[in-house]
């Protein structure tokens, strides 16, 4: 049986409120806050990127997996749409920083917002097939939204890391299902700084069709219903979509609450449902079932069923909880600082 041996998250401390962005572009903040169900989002400072977020999240995953020698990690996969380099892997830096080089397989994954769950899926498959003892999957992004675009109100940063293995599990993976079609709802062409999206087309035909497709197929395959689960976490492009899709599948607000981070975190893209899973594991009890479904534009969803083991109680407090990172000691920035941090201001080289 394969599953999670250790998990960790990392978030920037900086936040920007919806009102601060709306003020600059003449947008109506209350209608954005209501429409997106989102009040503020995380902002990475200039010395933080997908690689640094991944390193810190991985260190926390290792802290919760004391038996894991980094040298025994056979693969490292980072799913992101904001790898700092176009050509040069992010994973090599992370592997070097945690001491997992040189006998290790490494690849960076891309698939809009589901690159992180892809990394988790492949890492799980490796350990399940006994090709290696442990595999590290990381979901991280420092996503960009074009100035004044609706995405600018939500595009945020964060990382979740998971060490997969077959012993000392804290959550066993009972089953998975992936659902994918060619749906052009959101994209970024090469050399373009900001992504483009299909507006309302990103909803029903894209997010909902794929999230429901993967979720219903997995629930059917497992012979389970929403009420069988203690918790559920979905991709969170805003606060509204994951709540709506959860209700459509029969989940309740109480089931999604621990992992429903978007209202104050924003959309962490590849990180969204994986970071939601870290926050859910922070409160889960042994025996709990957790449903997880990612969504990535382009488009596809990966769904997982996790069963929490007794070991969760031993490791939960060995690293900082995700909700603590989300809600305590935050630093609010104005739009000018945010624009500088996100390199939106054109300067001379």
């Amino acid at each position: 049986m394969a599953g999670i041996v250790g998990y960790g998250a990392h978030l920037p401390r900086h936040r920007i409120k919806v009102e601060e962005i709306a003020k600059v572009w003449g947008a109506d903040a209350p209608s954005y806050k209501k429409g997106l169900m989102l009040r503020e989002k995380s902002v990475p400072p200039p010395d933080m990127d997908t690689i640094t977020l991944s390193v810190e999240a991985s260190k926390r995953a290792l802290a919760r997996a004391e038996m894991v020698d980094p040298a025994d990690i056979g693969a490292i996969y980072i799913g992101s749409e904001s790898h700092p380099y176009a050509v040069k892997p992010s994973g090599t830096v992370v592997a070097e920083a945690i001491g997992a080089t040189p006998h290790i397989h490494c690849a960076d994954f891309e698939f809009a917002c589901k690159a992180g769950s892809e990394a988790m899926y492949v890492a799980l498959s490796h350990v399940e097939a006994k090709q290696m003892k442990y595999a590290l999957a990381i979901a991280a992004d420092t996503s960009q939204g074009a100035p004044s675009d609706a995405l600018e109100f939500s595009a945020a940063a964060g990382a979740g890391a998971f060490i997969m293995g077959t012993d000392n599990l804290i959550a066993e993976c009972l089953d998975t299902h992936s659902y994918m079609t060619d749906t052009p709802d959101f994209w970024r062409r090469e050399h373009q700084f900001y992504p483009q999206h299909g507006g309302r087309f990103t909803g029903e035909e894209a997010y909902f069709a794929h999230t429901l497709g993967a979720s219903k197929a997995l629930l059917g395959k497992a012979g389970m219903k929403a009420k069988d689960f203690a918790y559920a976490t979905f991709h969170q492009p805003n606060g509204k979509f994951p709540q709506k899709v959860a209700f459509m599948l029969g989940f309740t607000q109480e089931q999604i609450d621990p992992g429903w981070l978007a209202p104050t975190l924003g959309n962490t893209y590849s990180g969204a449902s994986p970071i939601g899973l870290t926050a859910t594991l922070d409160v889960a009890k042994p025996g709990d079932l957790i449903f997880m479904c990612s969504y990535g534009s382009g488009a596809g969803s990966d769904a997982f069923i996790w069963k929490v083991t007794d070991r969760i109680n031993e490791v939960r407090d060995k690293a900082v909880h995700t909700r603590k990172l989300l809600s305590e000691n935050v630093i609010y920035v104005d739009y000018g600082t945010y624009a500088k941090y996100r390199r939106k201001i054109r300067k001379n080289d």
């Binding site: 640094t52 260190k59 920083a97 080289d349």
Partner: peptide
């Protein structure tokens, strides 16, 4: 102590 980006060799 946290892992951060220190500097870059331009764009």
């Amino acid at each position: 102590v946290e892992f951060r980006r220190i500097q870059d060799e331009g764009h």
